[in-house]
Design a protein around this nucleic acid. Structure first.
Lengths: 95, 95
DNA sequence: GTGCGATACTACGTATAACGTAATACAATG
DNA sequence: CATTGTATTACGTTATACGTAGTATCGCAC
């Protein structure tokens, strides 16, 4: 539907969060409930790609924050999203 | 990256097109070049889901058009995209 | 009229990742 | 002290994104 990675990055744009907090946050701001498998999978991959990083050592829960690369990546995605959304909406409206 | 289905529906919002035309159109308006496998796979699935339908019989090339359901689906996606984009952009800007 | 690139689509195989679910554990609340 | 919410890991399945190769037709140049 919508790239979980984007949702995750968007959630962290706000400040650091741990996985479960991202889950509820994403549900609140996007209306999309990511399952555990989807979310934590995406987190692991985003960390491997250097888009997010652990913020402090893990206890019971592991907070993450955006890296500079992650913030750049998010911005690029958002710009693309905006371009596509506008182009498509123009067509929908007009046709 | 961005759901091929959305791109395909957006491309058809403009008027009916066959596969290859969608490919070049999508590249032009979104800057995303979908490979043959991705595009025609998405077309087949979109047709099965009743989002698009063949516009006339196939000769060498098969044009498709949006169904009403497809147009509705596109609109919903675009609304969602817009909401998420705005929410995330606000966070990026502020934070 | 032949060669060649663009058009148009089909048919693969592979890899990834989305998704659901179950399991675990601790924390808080009644 | 039992139940619900928090927080994460583990795992199997399935869908699908993606690339590539193959086929065929078309149009244009030479």
């Amino acid at each position: 539907m919508l790239d979980p990675t984007l949702l995750l990055l968007a959630s962290l744009a706000n400040g650091q969060k741990h996985g479960y907090a991202m889950m509820t946050d994403i549900e609140a701001f996007a209306g999309i409930r990511l399952g555990a498998g989807t979310l934590y999978g995406a987190i692991t991959r985003a960390e491997q790609r250097g888009l997010i990083e652990p913020a402090g050592p893990a206890e019971r829960r592991q907070p993450y924050r955006l890296t500079p690369a992650g913030r750049r990546h998010l911005q690029e995605r958002l710009d693309l999203l905006d371009r596509v959304q506008r182009a498509a909406a123009r067509r929908q409206g007009a046709s």
